[in-house]
Amino acid sequence: MRIPPYHRTPTWQRFFAGAALGGLISWVIFFYMHGVQQEKQIRTLHEQREEIKDLNGEIAIWEQDYKKLNEKNEEILTIQEVEVTITNEKYSLDRLSIAEAEDVIEDDLSSLLAKDVASVYDGKVLLKKSIENKIVTINKKRYQLEVVEIMFYTKMNIEIKLKRTTS
Rank of each mutant, 00 (worst) to 15 (best):
V82C: 00
K53D: 13
V148H: 02
I160P: 03
I131V: 11
F152N: 04
M151T: 14
E63K: 08
E71C: 05
V125R: 15
F15P: 02
Q13I: 08
A114G: 06
D103Y: 09
P4I: 08
A118C: 00
S111M: 11
N56W: 07
H34P: 02
N139K: 05
M151N: 11
N56Y: 14
E58T: 10
N70P: 04
L162Q: 01
L45F: 12
P5L: 15
Y6E: 03
L145A: 04
S92E: 13
S92C: 00
I98N: 01
S110C: 07
Q38R: 12
K140Q: 12
P4Y: 07
K90M: 00
N73G: 03
Y32C: 12
T78M: 13
L77Q: 15
E39T: 14
T165L: 04
Q80A: 10
E100Y: 03
L77C: 03
E159L: 12
R49N: 12
L126R: 15
L109G: 05
S111K: 06
Q13P: 00
S92T: 06
V148P: 02
F152G: 01
I52R: 06
N56D: 08
K155A: 09
L45Q: 15
A20C: 04
F16R: 07
F30P: 00
I76G: 04
N56I: 05
H34Q: 15
D94W: 03
F30Y: 14
D54K: 15
D108T: 11
L127S: 02
I105T: 00
E81H: 04
T166A: 07
T44P: 05
S167H: 08
Q41W: 13
M151I: 12
M156V: 09
L113A: 01
N139T: 03
A60H: 06
K68V: 11
E75H: 13
I3N: 04
D122P: 01
K124S: 13
D94Y: 05
Q80C: 06
W62M: 10
Y66E: 10
V36A: 13
H7E: 14
A118I: 10
A60V: 07
I29L: 10
H46D: 12
E75P: 09
E159Q: 07
F152S: 03
I135E: 11
I158N: 05
D116Y: 14
G123A: 09
H46A: 10
E81A: 03
P5W: 08
Y32H: 10
L69G: 12
A19R: 11
S130K: 08
A99R: 13
Y32A: 12
Y143E: 02
H34I: 09
P10N: 07
W27A: 13
Y6G: 02
K141Y: 00
W12S: 02
M151Q: 09
R14M: 06
G23R: 11
L21V: 07
V120F: 01
Q37R: 15
L126W: 11
N88Q: 11
K115N: 14
K67F: 08
T137D: 08
A17W: 03
A20T: 07
H7A: 10
F31Y: 14
K128M: 10
T44R: 11
G18I: 05
V147N: 00
A19V: 13
Q48I: 06
